[in-house]
Nucleic acid binder design. Structure first.
Lengths: 104, 104
DNA sequence: TAATCATATTATAATATAATAATATGAAAA
DNA sequence: TTTTCATATTATTATATTATAATATGATTA
C-alpha cells in the first residue's frame, strides 16, 4: 500500500474511531489478550481458558462476559461446561496482525 | 498464513501480552486514535492536531504527553510550535492493519 | 434430594482514566 | 519589557476498570 493510500484510508478510520477504539479496548488488557490468544486455537471451556491464562475463575468469567456483550466471543453451554469461541471476524484478523507486528 | 501457524504464533503473543496490551491501550481511545490517524499523514503541530481531532487543547496535550512517555510519538520544538510525529514503527504497522480490518 | 462441579453474579475496595477549568511556561512580536 | 501565541501542567471531579472475596445458579452425580 502506497503512502498516499494509507493517508486517504485514515479518513475512513477517523469516521470509525469510536467503533475501532471500543474493540481495541477489549484487546488492551493482558488477560483479555491471553484469553483471545487461547481462543484462536479454537473453542474452549471456561476452565480450559482459566488454565491457559492463569487468572482467577471470577475474573475470567467477568472478562468473558464483557467480551460476550461486545460480541467478540460467543458462548454455548454443554452440560456443566460453557464453551467460548471467537465470534467476531475482525478479532481474528486483528490477532493475526498483532502477531505480524510483534512476533514476526 | 495457515491456521496451524497462527496458533503456534499465539504462543509468542502470549509471552508479550503485557507489552502488546500496553500499546493497544494507547490506541484504544477515540481521540488518541484520531491523533495517530492524523499523524499518519506526517509530522504536525499541536494546533493542527487539535483541529484534526476536535478535542480541547488541554486534553490533546495530555494525550500527546502520554503517548510520548510510551515512546509512540516524538516531539520537536520549532519556535512557539511543537511538532509531533509517530516514532514507533509498530504503531504505523498497526494503523495499517486497522485500516485493512475496518475500512477495506 | 443432597452433594458436587462448572460457571456466573454481586459487592467492595483499590486504582486508573477522563473531562474540565485554571494556571504556568517559553518563545516571538509589538 | 509587556503582550501575545502555542503548548504544558496542575488540580479537581466524575467515571471506569480491576482484583478479590463471597455467594448464587444450573447441571450432573451419588
Amino acid at each position: 500500500m502506497k503512502s498516499q493510500d494509507i493517508i486517504k484510508s485514515m479518513t475512513d478510520l477517523k469516521r470509525r474511531s469510536e467503533e475501532v477504539a471500543l474493540l481495541l479496548k477489549q484487546l488492551s488488557h493482558p488477560q483479555r489478550l491471553l484469553i483471545l490468544c487461547s481462543l484462536v486455537e479454537g473453542e474452549k471451556s471456561v476452565s480450559e481458558i482459566e488454565k491457559g491464562c492463569g487468572a482467577s475463575q471470577s475474573s475470567v468469567s467477568q472478562f468473558l462476559k464483557g467480551m460476550r456483550l461486545e460480541g467478540l466471543v460467543g458462548a454455548r453451554r454443554e452440560g456443566k461446561q460453557v464453551f467460548y469461541k471467537i465470534q467476531d471476524d475482525r478479532v481474528l484478523s486483528l490477532m493475526k496482525s498483532l502477531y505480524k507486528t510483534f512476533c514476526a
